[in-house]
Nucleic acid binder design. Structure first.
Lengths: 124, 124
DNA sequence: TTATTATTTAAGCAATTGCTTAAATACGAT
DNA sequence: ATCGTATTTAAGCAATTGCTTAAATAATAA
């Protein structure tokens, strides 16, 4: 479908075409990044990811306790993260431990750093 | 409401309490970051943000052309970004130009860099 | 085997998202 | 004033999200 109903007279055709190329060339990267950001953009999931980053590994039960949420609700967040391979799972007896996948640990590190640098409010 | 129905026997109470403190101390930062990531996590909005970053400023009409989407749809994405002050707006005659707010430009720079580093598929 | 513990999965539902279409607003030119 | 251009805003709706509750699965212990 065409949408170019709006063409302002001073539109810079060169700029518009350059932008179309930028987007087209990076199509896969936009998909990759937006899927990761979409998942990290939920406050509960961002907390889960940060906690896994700090503690190396946690189980659904720990997270349920920490976040004061139902186990099932947390489990479903973990499932979404696991489905996109943002986190890994390992079993130790009955307990399933989750950890952040190395690749995504690096991708999200700038945000984890911001959370690390957070000055403690407890000092006020 | 209490949710701590699950208490595995080997649960590390010290770890759980440490995590609760981590989350509580960073409550505002989690909110701030997750709101930004939530907005950047939509593929259309990530493209808009990257294009504004590269081109300094664009109007809704340019973006509509580049992304092959209706002007109204793009305008509503811009509104969400403007409401959270992720982008700024300046008028030049009839045309409204949008640009990325400096603070969020820095916050999202790691992702913009990944998009910049994207090897051109045109070379294959 | 049966029970217990730890967890996932399925079903259901209210709230939110992202689009479409149509109406409203704002500035500029005649 | 009136018209054209550029854009936002409102209304409506299908699709998705994130929770709850209840049922299913998996490993261990008795």
């Amino acid at each position: 479908m065409d949408h170019h109903s709006c063409q302002r007279q001073q539109a810079d055709i060169t700029q518009i075409n350059r932008c179309k190329v930028r987007v087209a060339e990076r199509s896969d990267t936009f998909t990759y990044l937006s899927k990761a950001l979409e998942l990290a953009g939920n406050p509960t999931r961002l907390k889960i990811l940060y906690l896994l980053y700090k503690e190396k590994q946690l189980c659904v039960c720990d997270l349920s306790d920490i976040l004061d949420m139902g186990i099932s609700a947390v489990s479903q967040h973990l499932r979404k993260l696991k489905d996109r391979e943002i986190i890994n799972m390992t079993r130790q007896a009955q307990t399933l431990f989750y950890s952040v996948n190395r690749e995504y640990n690096n991708l999200l590190k700038p945000f984890f750093r911001i959370l690390d640098d957070q000055p403690s409010l407890a000092l006020i």
